[in-house]
Design a protein around this nucleic acid. Structure first.
Length: 277
DNA sequence: AGCCCGTCCTGAGGGC
DNA sequence: TGCCCTCAGGACGGGC
């Protein structure tokens, strides 16, 4: 499941492969991938040149000529691959962008959860998913004071609040577990009951962990690969995600797995203590 | 408004 | 062997 660091790695890898290329034709093979009219999507893109790729949270934004933008969310397993002109799509290839130089950009997605949409550049901020997105965690928009205010608004557990993209953009299930472990906070602790010290530790852990993950090129958990088909190399850095039944790297207690808000959640029962409020 | 739950999808893995 | 069942989860829409 690509989270912010993986999406950023994908963005960086894909950019030199597609920048400056002009779309000749588009074929959508699974209509639900496209939010909006498929016919409009297929008819508008030919002739447009890819100028740049931006990222906001877990969203990729392909900036095109004539002020068009394709917003793309990979959800669980979406992937982009640049292929030669004779490459045949497989059953998981749902969108094909053919370039004027003959190359093709395949969008593959086993679960078909990913979504993309075409709209005028600038109006992407009106998309429901992007409009209410919280601050970029590695930008100056992310401030401890604002983060604490946001935590105070919620009585529900901190794990769910971190997973909510309105709080801070880009965290998914893996990094939520990791940053809570790093800051020694129980995933079920009500968000508004965090101490000032805990909120500051969590704030710092989010920034440090995401920076580290981006520097490492993402994590190989699930099926993430970059645009060249290379796997990320971050898996050794994970401390709790998927580590249930193995010793906590800090204290040796067995990592436990529970369900929080319907999501698998990993934590150290000795160091991440749920405080009664 | 906050919060919870169902929905979308398919492949992997467990049980018998 | 092979089939059936459950599980995995990001965002969103509906209901309370």
């Amino acid at each position: 499941m690509p989270e912010l660091p993986e999406v950023e790695t994908i963005r960086k890898g894909l950019l030199p492969l597609v920048q400056g290329k002009t779309i000749q034709s588009v074929a959508v093979r699974w209509p639900k991938i496209i939010t909006g009219e498929v016919a409009f999507f297929e008819a508008t893109l030919p002739g447009k040149q890819i100028l740049y790729i931006d990222r906001r949270g877990k969203y990729l934004m392909f900036r095109l000529s004539d002020q068009w933008t394709v917003v793309s969310h990979l959800r669980m397993e979406g992937k982009y691959h640049l292929e030669d002109q004779d490459k045949q799509p497989d059953k998981h290839t749902h969108v094909i962008f053919k370039f004027t130089n003959g190359q093709q950009l395949f969008y593959n997605d086993v679960r078909k959860f990913g979504r993309m949409t075409l709209l005028p550049t600038g109006s992407e901020t009106e998309l429901p998913g992007i409009q209410a997105l919280g601050p970029e965690p590695l930008s100056s928009d992310f401030k401890l004071s604002g983060f604490r205010t946001e935590l105070k608004r919620h009585q529900k557990n901190i794990k769910s609040v971190l997973l909510d993209q309105h709080t801070v953009a880009g965290l998914g299930n893996i990094y939520c577990d990791e940053v809570l472990w790093l800051s020694k906070i129980h995933p079920l602790q009500p968000a508004n009951s965090l101490t000032a010290f805990e909120a500051a530790a969590l704030f710092a852990a989010i920034q440090a962990e995401l920076k580290k993950a981006i520097a490492a090129g993402g994590t190989t958990i699930r099926s993430y690969v970059d645009a060249y088909g290379h796997q990320g190399h971050f898996q050794l850095e994970l401390h709790v995600y998927g580590k249930e039944g193995t010793p906590c790297p800090r204290c040796g207690a067995m990592i436990e797995k529970i369900k929080v808000g319907g999501r698998g959640t990993h934590f150290c029962p000795q160091e991440q203590i749920l405080r009664q409020v």
